[in-house]
Design a protein around this nucleic acid. Sequence first.
DNA 1: CGGGATAAGGCTACACCGTAGAACTTATTG
DNA 2: CAATAAGTTCTACGGTGTAGCCTTATCCCG
Lengths: 227, 227
Amino acid sequence: MAKTRKPRGRRGLDKSQILDSALDLLATEGEAGFSIRKLGASIGVDPMTVLHHFESKEQLLRLIADRSLSSVELPPSSKDWQTDLRKVADAYRALAHRHPRLFHLHFRFHATGPVDHASSEVVYRAMRATGLPNDVAAGLGLSFFAFVLGFALAETEGLLLPVNELEEAELRALPSRDFPATRALIPAFRSLKPDAAFDVSVSVFIDGIAARSRSFSANKKVAARRT
Amino acid sequence: MAKTRKPRGRRGLDKSQILDSALDLLATEGEAGFSIRKLGASIGVDPMTVLHHFESKEQLLRLIADRSLSSVELPPSSKDWQTDLRKVADAYRALAHRHPRLFHLHFRFHATGPVDHASSEVVYRAMRATGLPNDVAAGLGLSFFAFVLGFALAETEGLLLPVNELEEAELRALPSRDFPATRALIPAFRSLKPDAAFDVSVSVFIDGIAARSRSFSANKKVAARRT
DNA sequence: CGGGATAAGGCTACACCGTAGAACTTATTG
DNA sequence: CAATAAGTTCTACGGTGTAGCCTTATCCCG
């Protein structure tokens, strides 16, 4: 049986409950507005009591990130590595949408908890299914993660929103001699659909991997035939 | 003539010089160790003097990010959109390597200064050269940026380093029944070469775009012939 | 049941932070 | 020279993380 001993203190405080409140506070206030004192006040407890359970603010933030990460529901590995990759990508983007104010923490504390390992296992299994050599597979797997996290972070930080009127005015002010492409795309920026952009770029990445996988296998066959 | 009026104060302080020192301090101490008081002390000036030139710490950080951004040397647009994309990617990764401690600021303050516009013009020009429709081109251009920035950030935050012995031990501890792919790639993680991983994944992304461009053009021709 | 042992929870204090407001000093202008 | 404006500093306020010490409640063992 698990050793979930009930808390002994008179307040019946539970680390896990504190973490929940902490995540709430962080999710609503953002990191700048998050403080141990506020957290203590929000749960009616002395700030030092919080630090008694989590030895520092840094540790607390780390555990908050871990907890939010534990909410990703990762797909089972299937036969088709491409859909597996797509599902992992979607799962992490959904995570970003669930807690946009704290998603950046996943870059600061690159967790190595079970969730991360499970997700990356799916990715690495997919990369190995391509037949590419191990060093390439490892690099591509990590890059795929970096891409997905980067896209999601860009989204939560507002880099990917459809441009508003102010930004549009700024773009229109660019000299058309030097910025023809930017100006030509202004209508597209106005009606930008992040979901579609994500789908397309994930597909593009996966297509690129598939192409590389095909040409690598072909070369290997040729080399084998030559011996 | 430009209006670079020399400073009038008795200390001869210059906004630009303060900014230089600020960037230095931030680059060596990291954001956690950066404070207006320390900056003031480092240049022998009252902290409030700093705030007189930059109205808040937030503004100062924003300008530091802008300044670091202004150091990217972006390539001229060529005839080949693929090499153009590659050069932009390299330029931003180089930026991250130049100032790893403050690269994350580029996500917080998505600058819209001239440098960013110039770089994105290169990207958008490339995307339009593919012949893809504008909405797809816009989304892919932004995604390409997100990918490059995400990779670079992952690198500066330590997600992409070759695994050390401690991490390797953690990976080895994973049950081989559930994590065969992760375990199989451990040697590859040991000797991971970020440069190569970046090159490969940028190529993969570009290849994917090129493939999509080809199939789109083909479809368009078919549709045109059918009328 | 008694009496440590142990952990939970709280109080105080310290060093540091960003910055508002007012005062002072100097350079420029009229 | 006086007036003005800009640069610089001082002081103070409310906020932060957390070290050190203390009290109190619960558990375990004899």
